[in-house]
Amino acid sequence: MNLIVSPTALMFAIVLVVIALAINLKEKIGLEKDMLVGVLRAVVQLTIVGYVLTYIIKVDQVWLTLLMVLIIIFNAASNAKKRAEGIPFAFWISLLAIGVATITTILLLILAHAIKFTPSQIVPISGMIASNAMVAIGLCYRSMNGSFRDQRQGVLERLALGANLKQASKAIVQNSIKTGMAPTIDSAKTVGLVSLPGMMSGLIFAGVDPTKAILYQIMVTFMLMAATSIGSVIACYLAYPRFYNADMQLK
């Protein structure tokens, strides 16, 4: 199968963006600037990444592969921090959470011989894990900020009853982890019914037998569930104490 998308085909695909832009302008939704920035960034970022990946796969150096993984984790953490709306040390918490989630999952996959330590496998899979962990952690932060604001009186009551910080925040932490993991769980429930996910679709596109592509997709589903739960739990447990001061009072 010919997998090359010609520049002409891409030009035609731009028509789709124009349609989206036209609807947006007509309905005065006000997203045209964001859409254009999104389209431009996607083109520029993906072009650069394409060349970088080609180089990394060609030279096949351990240090370069690891550096790429670190860059991915670093970028994911700095993006997750944006959702934290003032939670102190959010970048470092996110870096640790995404780092541990990505590295643990990758290590397990390598140990289980599910993937090999080659840049063509490690880099895309790290990206997939880190981006899912990033989204999950972002949702955790948002939920936590909202809950500490809305349930302030409940938290105060628990503190006044003599609860420690963990006991006073337990319900909020549990709920935030649930919120963070919800998209991963939902997509695991509907995988194959609603969407044929990227990894599987890619393999089928490339001519791999769908039954074999499924095996990879099952692995990806398990891997993302593990990664988002590790990431969410670490981020939530490190973030909740930041809502209190040293005297065990709500900030």
């Binding site: 349930q151 009186q153 009551e157 003599g162």
Partner: peptide, 27 residues
């Protein structure tokens, strides 16, 4: 924690948490 269990503060407009009365009394 020790201090607040000995010196117990009741709010003017308390909020009950959880779903049932038991959730509150079990806390």
């Amino acid at each position: 924690e020790t201090y607040r269990r000995e010196v117990s503060y009741c709010f003017q407009q308390p909020s009950l948490f959880g779903t049932t009365v038991q959730d509150n009394l079990a806390f």
